[in-house]
């Protein structure tokens, strides 16, 4: 490399790297950014089995059932428009309960049930998964509604 052009070459390489970073990010975001789904999104758009997503909504009252092994639970997640059955094996967070918000990480199995590998529930009374901010669970109709 001739010394004269070295700065130009470096600047071009840096520019290409930046464009490359942008393209990489955009292509990956296209696949992964729709990472958060509500049950209604699932109904409308469909999610391929095995694709890892976050499913967010409210746990339907009376839907939590514990399996005989003591560590597997089944529950329904709703956003008021659609309901998705889910299973989870593990230690559920303390604030995971019926009628409160939950974001479940996992994937759908072949039969249309959501297999959660991780449950994000409220850490404390002040914490709400940010995707569910502004939503409220209506106890009488078991529906989720936007506040106001």
């Amino acid at each position: 490399m001739k010394a004269k052009h070295q700065r130009l070459v470096l600047a071009l390489v840096a520019l290409m790297a930046l464009i490359g970073a942008g393209l990489l990010a955009v292509s990956a975001l296209k696949d992964e950014a729709a990472y958060f789904y509500t049950p209604n999104d699932v109904r409308i758009k469909g999610v391929a089995p095995g694709k890892s997503i976050r499913l967010g909504g409210m746990v339907v009252k009376g839907s939590i059932k514990r399996a005989a092994d003591g560590v597997t639970i089944r529950f329904d997640v709703t956003d008021g428009k659609a309901t998705v059955p889910a299973t989870f094996s593990g230690i559920a967070p303390d604030l995971f309960k019926e009628g409160s918000g939950v974001v479940a990480e996992g994937a759908f199995d072949g039969s249309g049930a959501f297999v959660a590998t991780n449950l994000l529930a409220k850490h404390d009374e002040r914490y709400m998964p940010r995707e569910l901010e502004g939503m409220r669970y209506d106890e009488s109709t078991h529906e989720m509604k936007a506040e106001r």
Binding site: L24, A28, L29, E32, A33, A34, Y35, S52, R130
Partner: peptide, 18 residues
């Protein structure tokens, strides 16, 4: 995206992949 009114979350699958 939230500023434009819809909520998405970007998580481990995106970051791990790149």
């Amino acid at each position: 995206t939230e500023a434009f009114g819809h909520k998405v979350s970007v998580g481990a699958p995106y970051f791990d992949r790149i």
